[in-house]
Design a protein around this nucleic acid. Structure first.
Lengths: 210, 210
DNA sequence: GCTTCTGGATTGACTGGTCAGTCAATGGAG
DNA sequence: CTCCATTGACTGACCAGTCAATCCAGAAGC
């Protein structure tokens, strides 16, 4: 029966555990929750968690790796669309990330709070993967620098940090209810974050005068 | 003898413990270190830590509160200088934060990694203080929006997030050796981060044409 | 069709180690 | 002599990870 085991009605217990972990990690935080919390949330015996995962960390690893790769693939795909300007590409990237949060806020919260923003403890292991995202974004900027669309005195790596940092801060603000989060807010944010970073905060008159 | 206790050569043991904690927290992370590590680093008995602090967390609390207040005061002071433009004010704020990292990288690492970027676990308690910073920055932006220097279609709160997020991402990149960090890099970053956020990544010709 | 066998799925009690926080004892400055 | 800084061994709680037992779906044999 599909990819399921023997018992139950064909439910994939590994998936059930992962989904439960998303909820528990988002609610209590990775460090503050017990493995038994995850097992309870999944409606599964404690030991079964260790049948599917070698450790508590491996659960988080799996969640991060799955999702982050999706994002990397998306960025590569967006970057490959020749007809788009750099601003449009960055807009699509921002849109993808914002939509990810919109559709799976718990998962994104876990990834950002427990991995991306925890590069010290847990995320250290994932720095290479995280860097890949920076580099892909930097690649988009670099191209625009080369063709004169973007300022040449701001390095692509530096620009990528500003761009990514702004987006992550936005998600963080939503996660902790610092900014409002209606459907409208999400949609508007997609355009605004690009406008802010690419076009700048200063009104065009001032920007042109400089 | 000043603010010291009886024994020793007038050394303030509380300060010694705090300084040791900065090093240990920065090196091993708050969660992965033991209180005994801090005591050892400070060259002090385990129990003395609990003579000066009621818990391990209170040490981190103290470090954060001290430093963050310094930053809030600095921002208020910068904002009060009437003759500065919004861009200049933001530049000073960025400069202050970057210099803080430059002069006390361990302390700033602890504050960012363990508090600011850990709003889930520990930082939750400090969200109000963290928000104050956002609001002060938003205030600077708001003023520029009112006098037409900054675009009115980007809300001040949103802009503040982008600005602060970009800076924090910069520090994070330095902390984890993702960006180079010579004295020159720090100095250049001060101007560039403001140029990126206020002026935008797009070259002026493009920005003006839009 | 019925029974037995097999191996992975599932269970949850238990262990071993870790560590924050306690506290009774010590010591030395005033 | 008193008071408080200082010491460090100890305790109680917590929890990740282990493991032996059990269960059950389907395969194999009859």
């Amino acid at each position: 029966m599909a990819a399921s085991g023997r018992h139950g009605a064909g439910v994939d217990k590994q998936r059930v555990i992962l989904d439960a972990a998303i909820r528990v990690f988002a609610r209590q935080g990775f460090h503050s929750c017990r493995v038994s919390d995850v097992a309870d949330e999944a409606g599964v015996a404690y030991g079964l968690v260790y049948h599917y995962f070698s450790s508590k960390e491996e659960i988080l690893n799996t969640l991060f790796t799955e999702r982050w790769q999706l994002m990397l693939d998306a960025i590569v795909e967006i970057d490959s669309r020749e007809q788009l300007t750099a601003r449009d590409k960055l807009g699509q990237v921002a849109g993808f990330i914002i939509d990810s949060y919109r559709h799976e806020p718990d998962l994104m919260k876990v990834i950002i709070v427990e991995v991306t923003r925890a590069a010290n403890t847990f995320g250290r292991h994932h720095l290479p993967k995280i860097r890949e995202a920076y580099n892909l974004i930097a690649g988009i900027v670099e191209q625009a620098r080369a063709d004169g669309t973007f300022k040449s005195d701001i390095s692509a790596e530096f620009a990528a940090m500003c761009f990514y940092g702004a987006i992550e801060q936005l998600l963080t603000a939503w996660i902790f209810d610092v900014l409002p989060k209606s459907d409208d807010d999400y949609e508007r944010a997609k355009g605004l974050v690009v406008e802010a970073i690419c076009g700048g905060l200063e009104s065009d008159a001032v920007g042109a005068a400089a």
